[in-house]
Write a protein that binds this DNA or RNA. Structure first.
Lengths: 196, 196, 196, 196
DNA sequence: TATGAATGAGAATTCATTCAT
DNA sequence: GATGAATGAATTCTCATTCAT
């Protein structure tokens, strides 16, 4: 009996989580509108009303996935700033480390990334937030004389987001390039430029 | 004679073009699925069947807009390579010129850009095509010794696309930054890097 | 001027007749509902409103084709009864001749036959009429002692119609069997039966 | 247990079957195109989407009816060949029995017959199949010397199908003539012919 | 808690037919 | 007489969501 009570909840959590997982896959693969609740529940071996036991609506489950992504990413970025190990590194290493972290995260959560970073309406704000975070860091370092003073760090931060956005799609998720390598390349490009 | 020549389609062409224009706005603003044929025709003061007089389906009109964008962009990029004026310029000026051209084009056709560069399935290929074009140019210039030999031009080209993609959204179409300024900033960034 | 007046009418007749011909083909091939006015006018190189210059509606042109078939068939059957040549023939030859006439007619007008004999609502009545005509003939001959008295000529007539109906489809229009041969076979079957 | 077993679908099956039944009536009465889903669901006291709960499309439900007819008819014809009772009968009785069986079936399922035997595209093949079955039987009996050797059994089989087709419409379904009587008449006609 | 069954609300598309010139 | 353009009126089908049990 006690068992029953616990079991139920546990099962419920499992189901919810399964639905969430499958939904992520479907949204990521097919987009919001092309994803059907019917498909999700079928894949989860659950009836349609059950779905609504766990989620209020299609939009709601989508939002939840977006928030999940957002949360995780935010935590990550904030932690990344605090990492002790970085302190001993050179500036280049530091920056590369941070970007690697982001790429790694994207690689580990391709579906969430696809949803939260590319498909959601909130993507805009999520990116802005990250961009803003990056900008702050860079400004700090610029103030410390590491970077040329005539560079607009807003543009740099936005550019970096753009690069990450693009390379994540073309080289990380598709091409399977390693996060470290990717980070390295773009940091060198941005730090030293292309001129010989 | 004049009458005869105009006989077929003058009016129809106008309607068609109006529908196309409105559709571009709607798709651009609301996305494919949220755009309803009913809205388009209402705005054009036409009945629904009229729509099907000019376009085979919702998908078809969307595709037409994507193709329009693709065509125009391709022409632009190819012309941009041939422009005489550029010959006398320095490398930096040349590259800046080319990127300015792209930004200007996007600015002139915000709806088409939104559709063809961001929303369409074909976007992937369109960007790849442009990236590939850019890569070729850069390689050439690299061969001529303008750029460091150890830089992977594929990554650079992709990065550039990413930057363009992002800045177009955040600074060009939204913020109203001038194409020239934008191009200038990113070219300087990529050529000389951030290091002081 | 006189020329013009005549020309117009002549052209009109030609067009009308062309439309009628094409319509027959389309109806025969695709059935009533699957046949689109748009297809007919396209094939005839005519605009849609022109169609309505010659025919009141889709139904009307279909009916006209049915009537055409009906008329021709009726004329044929009535003539067939009067044919002098038959008088000298034996009964078997006479009957065979009549049926051959019908098969030949169907073979010459496959589209009209398909429409009037198989597709139209009126088919029922057309067939009944022919059946009734045949029945009368047979009764006459029965009265004259040619046929067994205990045979119900209504059933025979209906059966004959059924046979004609079926063989026209399977052996005449499709298989290309000759009208004479077909008529011969079924007349011998009906007259002498299968028993050895 | 009983409850559990019934749990899934009892009600649904009823609805489905009701829809199927009504659809048969509508198709049979009005033909494929004139039959509207809206009419079917109205008559079944169900909303339109419910229809799509049970059938994929209008075409699908039509096909299902055709298959139903086909299946039943096939089973019937095959069983009819095996019937023990026939063995003791004379040839005439045997054949009459078989044809009676077919007529009876048509009489019991007038809507399915109308659909599967007259309206469907597959009708052609269904009839061919039956014709072929009949032909085989007759050939066998011909080989055994019951029938004249110079008779083409293909033509006979096709003729018989034609007769059945026609008499079913005019005398069985409309006129209400008894299957036995009908079968008797046509068998006698075909076996002994009309000549006195 | 779970599910079989149902539906409200809408969306795209089709086609015969007719204006207006 | 002819046509480019337009439309009224349907019709099939979809899908997220919710009853009733």
């Amino acid at each position: 009996m006690g068992k029953r009570g616990r079991k139920k909840g546990a099962n419920g959590e499992k189901r919810r989580s399964l639905l969430l997982h499958i939904a992520a896959e479907e949204f990521s693969k097919n987009g919001y509108h092309e994803t059907k609740i019917s498909t999700i529940v079928q894949r989860a071996n659950v009836t349609q009303p059950s779905f609504y036991l766990y989620f209020q609506s299609k939009e709601e489950i989508f939002k939840e996935l977006v928030n999940l992504f957002h949360q995780k990413l935010l935590t990550l970025v904030q932690q990344s700033l605090l990492e002790k190990g970085l302190e001993k590194n050179s500036l280049e290493e530091k920056i590369t480390g941070r970007i690697t972290t982001i790429f790694s995260f994207f690689q580990e959560h391709p579906d969430l990334t696809q949803i939260g970073f590319y498909m959601a309406n909130e993507s805009k704000e999520i990116k802005s937030q990250i961009a803003s975070q990056i900008e702050q860091n860079l400004r700090e370092e610029q103030k410390n004389g590491y970077f040329r003073a005539d560079i607009d760090m807003h543009t740099v931060a936005e550019s970096l987001i753009g690069i990450i956005e693009r390379l994540t799609k073309t080289k990380l998720l598709n091409g399977g390039t390693k996060p470290e390598k990717l980070a390295n390349e773009i940091v060198r490009l941005l730090l030293y430029g292309m001129m010989s």
